[in-house]
């Protein structure tokens, strides 16, 4: 059975910071949303959780591009993650979750799976 998804509104354009990231809380846990105004598309969303430390910090990394691909560098141990695929550039076996993102008027929406929402540990 296909997991159920929905387009959850997470924030507005005013919350975004150009060339940088912010963190939002979704039904699927913490997600980092990046706004790179000099690219098309300009919005990217990946898991906020740094797979190497287990901490929720990726939105606070420095963004940029490497060989033309948009990336963020983890603020803790500095690995780079491709914002389009979630692939870690330093370790082939590591990937973070990527979320489809769209601009709906003034709102930013992410496509998240609803079914897993309750599994966040207390």
């Amino acid at each position: 059975m296909k997991a159920r998804t929905c387009w959850e509104a997470v924030c507005t354009v005013d919350d975004l910071v150009a060339d940088s990231g912010i963190a939002v809380w979704t039904d699927d846990g913490p997600v980092a949303v990046f706004y790179l105004p000099h690219r098309l598309p300009a919005l990217f969303a990946i898991s906020h959780t740094d797979p190497f430390s287990g901490s929720n910090v990726l939105a606070r990394g420095i963004t940029g591009d490497i060989n033309g691909e948009p990336v963020v560098a983890s603020p803790l141990y500095k690995q780079h993650f491709n914002l389009r695929s979630g692939q870690c550039l330093e370790d082939e076996s590591v990937q973070v979750k990527v979320y489809p993102v769209l601009l709906d008027g003034n709102r930013i929406r992410l496509e998240v799976q609803v079914a897993q929402a309750a599994s966040v540990a207390a």
Partner: peptide
């Protein structure tokens, strides 16, 4: 300042030192 925010390491951006649990 708006133009400088995205340039800084998280420590500089938030003017504190990030520890391993964020």
């Amino acid at each position: 300042a708006t133009d400088h925010v995205p340039l800084q390491d998280t420590n500089d951006t938030f003017m504190a030192n990030m520890q391993k649990n964020g």
